[in-house]
Design a protein around this nucleic acid. Structure first.
Lengths: 200, 200
DNA sequence: TTCTATATGAACGATCCGTTCCGATATGTA
DNA sequence: TACATATCGGAACGGATCGTTCATATAGAA
């Protein structure tokens, strides 16, 4: 079994003097993202990224000292905006939320997120970055939920943040167990119906 | 930086004829579990396991062709029973459930579970084993929830399996984001209070 | 006894690790 | 102009692991 060693892509760059070359940074992050898409996280070696980006390993290690740092950088670059458009009813809003994230996670770019969670289990740098992102997303989701609470859609006394975390956990669970084909509307109903004041 | 290469432990075994040596299997799985405890998943190389178990690499690869297969075998051996003692009230039952799993996941043995989930993101064998385990656990939890539904504790019309999955997802979320110090009672309340007929 | 399947230990070529050199390039300052 | 500075690509290193393949020894099964 001959192991295909990654091909080189793109032109070679040079130093542009006593400052960092933005093209080099872009080329490396692009190469890393491409490798992740094509070969998964197991194929993402520093060697392979340097080869593909036509960059020196010294350059790579200078700016991203660990594989975790590189992974986080790729992720920061790829992560899309999660719009939380308030649809007037929380059930619709969360259905849309699930539809959006499941769709996003099914794209090659979105699949990186599962790898980030995986890497975070054995890499403190990645874990820290993931935790920051989780908090950020939780706050945004909490805000949407709290609007619904103010409108009286939800049982009085409900803690918005707790419910938001439940909503988020259900999504992560589907991601990590390969069930992104779950029906967003059904999931939203399963998660939320207990909390809604007006029973459907 | 001198990298400590794992020590050998235990006696050397021999062939016991034209059949598999159960001592070899035990020695290898024990060595793998020990390495996981001591050095984490990054230290779990086939080389290191063979060295520590005083086994030949050929033997290792014969029975566990991939690292994922070995990880699953270790996990199958370590996984403890999750007792779902019905406490009469679902809130108490789930509080106990969270207390048990968080405690278990904080032990060296339990930490393997997070690594299994991580490995499942890039290893189909592990993903399949994880999915089987998830289904098994979900059924057990669903049963407990359904008892509660029958007792009338929960809003009528609640789907036991959906609620059970929500309960489980909340636990996984805490595991994967390093928040096993979450208060079990508070979490159970945050997840369940919307579904309980008698408020708070 | 002969056949078969196992277990250990050693070696192989290959890959990746993290680091360290080198020479070339281009900026900013004196 | 002259020079120090900082980057970049490329190559090499010692070490570790990978997955495979030998040789040798063991002992049950036919």
């Amino acid at each position: 079994m001959t192991k295909r060693t990654g091909e080189c892509a793109g032109p070679k760059r040079q130093s542009i003097g006593a400052r960092r070359n933005p093209e080099t940074e872009a080329a490396i992050l692009t190469a890393a993202a491409d490798i992740l898409r094509e070969k998964g996280v197991r194929g993402l070696s520093m060697e392979a990224v340097a080869r593909r980006a036509r960059a020196g390993k010294a350059t790579l290690y200078k700016w991203w000292p660990t594989r975790g740092a590189l992974l986080v950088a790729v992720y920061e670059r790829l992560k899309g905006e999660h719009p939380h458009a308030d649809k007037g009813h929380l059930l619709d809003t969360i259905t849309d939320f699930y539809r959006f994230v499941f769709g996003h996670w099914q794209t090659p770019e979105g699949q990186v997120f599962a790898l980030i969670i995986a890497e975070a289990q054995s890499n403190a740098d990645v874990a820290e970055a993931l935790e920051g992102y989780r908090r950020e997303r939780l706050e945004a989701l909490t805000e949407v939920v709290s609007w619904s609470v103010e409108r009286g859609e939800i049982r009085p006394g409900t803690e918005s943040r707790a419910l938001a975390e439940t909503i988020m956990a259900a999504a992560w669970m589907r991601l990590l167990t390969g069930r992104l084909d779950t029906d967003p509307a059904a999931l939203a109903r399963d998660v939320l119906s207990g909390w809604l004041v007006e029973k459907q």
